[in-house]
Every structure is written in structure tokens, then in C-alpha cells.
Nucleic acid binder design. Structure first.
Length: 436
DNA sequence: TCCGCTTCCACATTTGAACCGT
DNA sequence: AACGGTTCAAATGTGGAAGCGG
């Protein structure tokens, strides 16, 4: 485990990362800050994100660089701990399903992206320790490009193939339990399994927008927030797990990844060797179609789960069955009274309909009046909309496909703040990168 | 025009939430 | 209120067609 103070000694111990406080000096050019603002929003409406966050004693003007990302996929064993940028002393995160991620990473993880949005699998499943049980925090996730290259599958491995596409607006997924107390977050693992990835630059749902055939790195951000709404800032911790690096694709390139996904993802059960959608079954269906209707005999295979049958699974691994991510908890678990974050892992997230999917389309965007959540840790059942920040007239100054910058850079660079708070489970655009 | 790469879409199947009746 | 069955939306990878550029 890397301690943040070791990674970022420049932060010191008394410095919190945060937006410029009222009256505080900031090196952020006012003109540039202006570029982040919504022309159609009244300033007071912006006061709804990260409100009540405790004042940072020492806002920083420039972000410290993250350590270099790992080299090519699968070429080097991932370090056992996340890299972190962090002003929350003592807080540490660990990747719950790290073994599964490592398995994918050893092959070269690929994530499907579609216009409608596709979930990540494996999902980031995090356990956190060291939080103040009484304080409240937000959990965020974003995905940043690893390098400035576009990749191509060369039959056996991924290789850089030219320059990356211009970087898209950054969007941040806000965990629907946010904000919740430290005790709440530490009670059980925090799952981001409902995060969706899309390649649609005009995506209206707020999914995280990625380019196909590019390498990305998910990051987890923890923000201390005393209340839901405030103009103050209480510290941030950003983590990334090198083994979660992936290449976005619109169709799987590496058949080994396909096999792993089918074997590990319960929704792909039908494609396993004993599934009715396995290749053998599909071929048989095609033949039956060509020959015309005839008595269907597929039931002879039974449920497909019977051991020793003609389609015995050879992929259903031990890891998968023991991994809570692949094995949904019994339905009773979801029905039983559970703590807000889900006494039984991800099941609790099912208590927050639509929240993980970002903002429902019928909800107004840029909701300025997100309901104050009582300290029950239970967020409102619906999220507000995501927000999209366009580059301002001053220009962002970011090169296309720039190397990943710390999430906190948005704040560290002095603005814009406060960000509009789109509500838990929604996505927040903090992008300042030119789209084209 | 051809070819290769990439994207898109319909499809069958599985899962789980919602609904309804008992 | 609890339970069980049914329905339906959402999720999965597949495979072929379409689009695009060299």
C-alpha cells in the first residue's frame, strides 16, 4: 500500500486539496474559470455541489503529478496497492475483486462500449478504511486515458497504432449513496458495477464517454463532505488501481477476454459451454432452421447445469463462483432489511432505482435543488441530471489526449467552484478538454 | 473496385425487479 | 405481511451487415 504522503510529499500533512475558498488567492485565471460557468445558470444555483465540505486550510494551485502508469497491458504484474492522490490522512482503499481484475489484466482487459452504454465488467468494487465514521463523504468514479495512443489488436496482442483521438469531456460517476457517513462506506464494499461506458459523444444519459481502441484507467475519488451543499472543501483522496486498466472496444478483439467475460459474468451465462446460447446450441438452431421445423430436442440437455451432460462447462471457474461480484446474492438478501449501502454487497444498490444509471431523462437537468439528505445515508431515490461543462473562451490549454491528470486538478487549479451537484448515482461532467 | 478494420444491430438467453394473487 | 408465480426490462456475447478509409 502506498501512502499518499509518500507519493505526494509535496502535499505535506496540513494541506487539503480543494477549490479556492472565498477570498483565497488562486492562480487560476479568472477568464479560464469563467469558461467553466454555465451561461444559463444563476450563480447561486451552482452552490449545490460539494456543499458543506469543510474548509481547506491550504488550497493548492497546481496538482502534483501521479506516478507513471504501468506499461503495456499484461506486461508487468500490478503493484498490490492503488496509487493515490490524497489529502485524507489514514484513508486507504483496496480493490475487493482484485484477483478477477488481475486475471483480466493478465490477458489485456477489454471493455465494450456502445451507443446505449455498456456496463463495465469486472466492475470496480472497493473497500475503504480509515474514514471518520461520523463525517460524510462522496464516492466518485471517472475514467481517464492512460496515454496518447490509439491501439490496435494485432492478432496476439495490443499495439499502439497512431495518435489518440482528441480527448472527450470528462464525466464523473457519483456513487448513489453519496453523500454518506464514513461508517456507512466502511460497512461493506462499495461497488461501481452500474457505471456505463459509451462511445456516443452526444450521449444524453450521462454515461462515461470513451473512444474505442484507446487505453483507459478508472479512478476512484473520495471527497469529504460535511453536508450535501456547501462552498467549502474538506479534502479529497484519489485512487487508481493499475490492474483495472483496460482498452475500450466496440467488439471484443481478444478471444481470451471473451472467454473470461463469459465465464465470469452471470449475464453471459447463456454463452457458456452448458448454456443454450453456446456455440453448439446456436449452430444446432441454425441447422434446424435450414432443415425446417422439427421436434426440438434441446431440452434433452436439461437445464444445462446438470453435470456430465453433453455441454459440460469447462469455464465455470472456482474464482467466479466464490467472487461475490459474479454470484449475485440470494434474493432474500435484497429483500431483507439492509444498511443503505447494502448489507449484502451490491444488493443494496438495488434499493436505489435508476440511481446507478445516471439521471433519468425525464428529470430536469442541472437540478439546483437537490434534496437535502438526512443523515440516514439513504439518498433520494432518483438522481438529478449529469452536467456537462464545456471549455470556455479561454481554452482549457489541455492537449488532445493529454496524459491523465489527477481528478483533483480541476479543483486544484482553482475552479470552477462550486461545481453543480447532479445528485448521487448521476454523472458529473468536469471536462475541460476540447472535444474536437 | 477491393480489402481490411471498425461499428452497428438483431438475436437468444439469463437475471432480477416489479407486479399480482393467495 | 409473507410467499410464490408471472411478466418485463435490462444485461450478455454472437454473427453478419454496413460504413469507412486506404
Amino acid at each position: 500500500m502506498y501512502h499518499p504522503r509518500e507519493l505526494y510529499p509535496s502535499l505535506g500533512t496540513g494541506c487539503c486539496l480543494g477549490p479556492p475558498q472565498p477570498g483565497a488567492d488562486s492562480s487560476f485565471p479568472p477568464a479560464l474559470a469563467e469558461g467553466y460557468r454555465y451561461p444559463d445558470l444563476d450563480t447561486p444555483k451552482l452552490d449545490c455541489f460539494l456543499s458543506g465540505i469543510e474548509a481547506a486550510p491550504c488550497p493548492l494551485a497546481a496538482p502534483p503529478p501521479l506516478p507513471p502508469l504501468p506499461p503495456a497491458l499484461g506486461t508487468e504484474p500490478a503493484p498490490p496497492a492503488p496509487d493515490a492522490l490524497h489529502s485524507l490522512p489514514g484513508v486507504s482503499l483496496s480493490l475487493e475483486n482484485r484477483e478477477l481484475w488481475k486475471e483480466f489484466n493478465s490477458v489485456g482487459t477489454e471493455m465494450i462500449i456502445t451507443k446505449a452504454g455498456r456496463r463495465m465488467f469486472p466492475a470496480c468494487r472497493i473497500s475503504v478504511t480509515g474514514l471518520d465514521p461520523e463525517a460524510r463523504y462522496l464516492f466518485l468514479l471517472d475514467v481517464v486515458p492512460v496515454d496518447g495512443a490509439r491501439y490496435r489488436w494485432q492478432g496476439r496482442r495490443w499495439e499502439p497504432s497512431g495518435k489518440a483521438e482528441p480527448r472527450l469531456p470528462d464525466r464523473v460517476y457519483i456513487h448513489p449513496d453519496s453523500p454518506a457517513t464514513g461508517a456507512h462506506w466502511m460497512r461493506q464494499p462499495v461497488s461501481f458495477h452500474r457505471v456505463k461506458l459509451t462511445n456516443s459523444t452526444l450521449d444524453p444519459h450521462g454515461h462515461l464517454i470513451l473512444h474505442s481502441m484507446h487505453k483507459y484507467q478508472p479512478r476512484i475519488h473520495l471527497v469529504r463532505a460535511a453536508q450535501l451543499c456547501s462552498q467549502h472543501w474538506g479534502g479529497v483522496a484519489s485512487f487508481r488501481f493499475p490492474e483495472t486498466t483496460f482498452i475500450s472496444v466496440t467488439a471484443y478483439q481478444n478471444p481470451r477476454i471473451t472467454q473470461l467475460k463469459i465465464a465470469a459474468n452471470p449475464f453471459a451465462k447463456g454463452f457458456r459451454e452448458n448454456g443454450r446460447n453456446c456455440k453448439r446450441e446456436r449452430d444446432a438452431r441454425v441447422k434446424r432452421k435450414l432443415r425446417g421445423p422439427e421436434p426440438v430436442a434441446t431440452e434433452a440437455y436439461g437445464s444445462g447445469d446438470a453435470p456430465g451432460g453433453p455441454c459440460d462447462s469447462t469455464l465455470g471457474g472456482d474464482v467466479r463462483e466464490s467472487d461475490p461480484e459474479q454470484v449475485p446474492a440470494p434474493r432474500e438478501a435484497a429483500q431483507a432489511p439492509a444498511p443503505p449501502c447494502g448489507g449484502s454487497s451490491a444488493e443494496a444498490y438495488l434499493l436505489h432505482p435508476a440511481a446507478f444509471h445516471g439521471a433519468p431523462s425525464h428529470l430536469p437537468t442541472r437540478n439546483p435543488s437537490f434534496p437535502e439528505a438526512a443523515d440516514s445515508g439513504r439518498p433520494a431515490p432518483y438522481s438529478a441530471a449529469f452536467l456537462e461543462l464545456q471549455p470556455g473562451p479561454g481554452g482549457s490549454g489541455y492537449p488532445a489526449a493529454a496524459p491523465p491528470a489527477p481528478f483533483a486538478s480541476h479543483f486544484l487549479q482553482g475552479g470552477p467552484f462550486p461545481l453543480p451537484y447532479p445528485g448521487p448515482g448521476a454523472y458529473l461532467d468536469v471536462g475541460s478538454k476540447p472535444m474536437y
